[in-house]
Design a protein around this nucleic acid. Structure first.
Length: 271
DNA sequence: AAAAGGACCTGGTGGC
DNA sequence: TGCCACCAGGTCCTTT
């Protein structure tokens, strides 16, 4: 479900209601997520205050009094802030009881998501320490993407979706960014020029920024922390548009499988 | 050693 | 209606 824009939208939506709140109680109804939820989690978290919320790639980080809660939504995860009387839905695996009788619930049908605790500096967590730069920060630029590419001969799409290269670019936005940059997803890295990487970094930034501004992309069920869906879906140029007309040139959008993922592109615009 | 494939899950959809 | 195959926004681990 969530790529970088969706996680960013959730972060922004939950910051105001959550920062400063105390976690009074935690209920783990299903511990079998991507990694088992720590048995001690309820004990560890009880009484801790949420000091700050941030994001690293697709990880949402709740910085608490004595450590950090790392939340990854995987493919189908979501977080909802609910009133005290909200009935449990299926797949609501974890509940955080807050003051004012509000509760934050982690919902994830496919259980590819993760909820992890660390009391160490979070940057050094094994899942975060090897991540590439944030695409919206200055370290991610044409020079960087070009230099990294010299180490590989793989396809362009798998390259930009690799979180060790750059974080946050999932299948939807990889397709969209490649369309914006007029580059075919299956191109091999060594066939590209320096200027292609400059254009591509700009396109990645552009599509992620626009998606954040629109509140993210809702295909089936994405909502921010308060239940609002995103509005970026109508702006998608290629993703999910197989057989439809390219909005730039009118040719049909093609679909093919690349590395097991649905891949969309305009064979006329993208070279 | 890089790159592709498999695995982890549930639910929705479309075909027969 | 039922059954089945296939698809889905992620990413770590294993195999080639």
């Amino acid at each position: 479900m969530p790529e970088l824009p969706e996680v960013e939208v959730i972060k922004r939506g939950l910051s105001t209601p959550l920062v400063g709140q105390t976690i009074h109680q935690v209920w783990v109804r299903e511990a079998r997520l991507r990694w088992p939820v720590a048995e001690q989690l309820p004990t560890l978290l009880a009484g801790q205050q949420i000091k700050q919320i941030s994001r690293r790639g697709k990880y949402l980080l709740l910085h608490c009094t004595q450590g950090h809660l790392l939340i990854h939504l995987g493919m189908s995860g979501s977080l909802r802030l609910l009133d005290h009387d909200a009935p449990f839905r299926k797949h609501e695996h974890i509940e955080f009881l807050l003051a004012q009788q509000q509760r934050l619930r982690f919902h994830d049908p496919r259980r590819f998501g993760a909820v992890l605790w660390t009391s160490e500096p979070f940057q050094q967590h094994p899942l975060l320490v090897h991540l590439g730069p944030e695409p919206l920060e200055a370290a991610f630029n044409g020079e960087y993407l070009y230099q990294q590419a010299q180490k590989h001969r793989r396809t362009l799409k798998s390259y930009i979706m690799d979180s060790h290269v750059v974080v946050g670019v999932g299948n939807i936005y990889a397709n969209e960014a490649l369309f914006l940059a007029a580059l075919q997803p299956q191109r091999r890295l060594h066939t590209l020029q320096y200027s292609d990487y400059q254009r591509l970094t700009a396109s990645i930034r552009q599509v992620l920024t626009a998606a954040i501004d629109q509140g993210g992309t809702t295909l089936r069920d994405f909502t921010d922390g308060t239940g609002q869906p995103g509005n970026f879906q109508p702006a998608l140029q290629v993703y999910g548009r197989a057989g439809k007309a390219c909005e730039r040139c009118g040719h049909q959008i093609h679909q093919q499988r690349l590395h097991q993922r649905a891949t969309y592109f305009c064979p006329h615009c993208q070279l």
